[in-house]
Design a protein around this nucleic acid. Structure first.
Lengths: 193, 193
DNA sequence: CGATATACGGAACTGCCAGTCTCGTAAACT
DNA sequence: AGTTTACGAGACTGGCAGTTCCGTATATCG
């Protein structure tokens, strides 16, 4: 049984909401813990009682809750690739995440615990889905052998990530995922030929 | 004519060398200006007289000097794509740059002047070369129309960048650029069909 | 009931680091 | 000789992450 005064309900959500608002309004650097606590109407200690660091708080707020649904079996590799690209893109294009990502990645890289968790939560899960997708394609006879999943991962995730975080221009009107689906399908096919 | 005591020769190089050493040994965060100045046997003022900020110093040390040579005309789109991938990869896989890039990108994003210069130096030049490559392919009849250069840029740069900065695993033994050449050539062909 | 354990907001405090400024001195120009 | 700018050294400012302490509130255990 839990001893002492229990954690107050609602503080977790209030803090996370404050983080999202401040990230959107001011970006990662000016989203300070003091500002977050003030905005949430909470003491700093209550924040640090729940998350070990700013990076962990932001990670838990904007990355962890992203539910990567397993992309459904669309019946063809082409359809599966298009679906995966949509999932990847939609998981990356929230305003908060685009604001936070460069600095967050830097901080995550500096914290071994967070780096491991990032690898598992973000990359590992996505990689697993890709393996399923590739195995289905092999079973259908669309690929003669299963290509290196890491290469496929880089080929599908890389262009989306790079566009959203390095390029300043707006994505093509048809949508980034849609524009990439056809060429990247061809790339995967070439890898598995 | 220059008034007053002239800048001392060699300080620029000594500082840049100290930056490279400290980035390699300790990473961006612990590569502090105090440490750089001490290592170079120089006062902090001499550093700030030459570069406006830490981000600008690191940028000038590890990004600016990267000479992106125009990829030569290999006679085929396939060869050109392979050559471009090699240039991109080799411009990104120095130890210092891999250590610095996440934090450097975050700092560059926060400084409008640097962000503009980064876009011109790094992205703009590369983009120009891609346009030349695509125009040659169209002239040869390998592509029926010139695809959106920004999409091609994302497709070629994205996988390399993502692998080097997000993935912890080592590149395939044949080399990252070589492994990506064939599938990404297929992607470009699909885009320009 | 009282003792204990944990939570709360508020605020003071530490430590690190980027960036600025000052001092005494040196090296060029006019 | 006088002016201007550079130099190393080091003091200083300011912002922010993270810690600690205070007075208080709320739970369980005996």
């Amino acid at each position: 049984m839990a001893r002492g005064r229990p954690r107050e309900e609602g503080i977790d959500d209030a803090v996370r909401e404050a983080v999202r608002a401040l990230l959107t309004e001011s970006g990662y650097q000016r989203c300070t813990i003091d500002a977050v606590a003030a905005r949430a109407g909470v003491g700093k200690a209550a924040v640090y009682r729940r998350w070990r660091s700013k990076a962990e708080l932001v990670f838990a707020t904007v990355v962890h809750p992203v539910e990567l649904e397993p992309p459904s079996d669309t019946g063809s590799l082409r359809g599966d690739v298009a679906a995966v690209l949509e999932v990847i893109q939609s998981s990356l294009d929230s305003v908060e995440l685009r604001q936070a990502l460069p600095s967050l990645l830097a901080d995550v890289r500096a914290d071994p615990v967070l780096e491991t968790r990032f690898g598992e939560v973000f990359l590992g899960r996505e990689r697993g889905y890709l393996v399923q997708m590739l195995d289905r394609a092999v079973a259908r006879g669309e690929l003669s052998r299963r290509p290196d999943p890491a290469l496929v991962h880089a080929i599908l995730l890389g262009p989306v990530l790079t566009w959203l975080h390095l390029f300043t221009e707006t994505p093509p009107s048809s949508g980034l995922g849609a524009s990439l689906a056809s060429p990247l399908h061809a790339a995967v096919v070439a890898l598995g030929a």
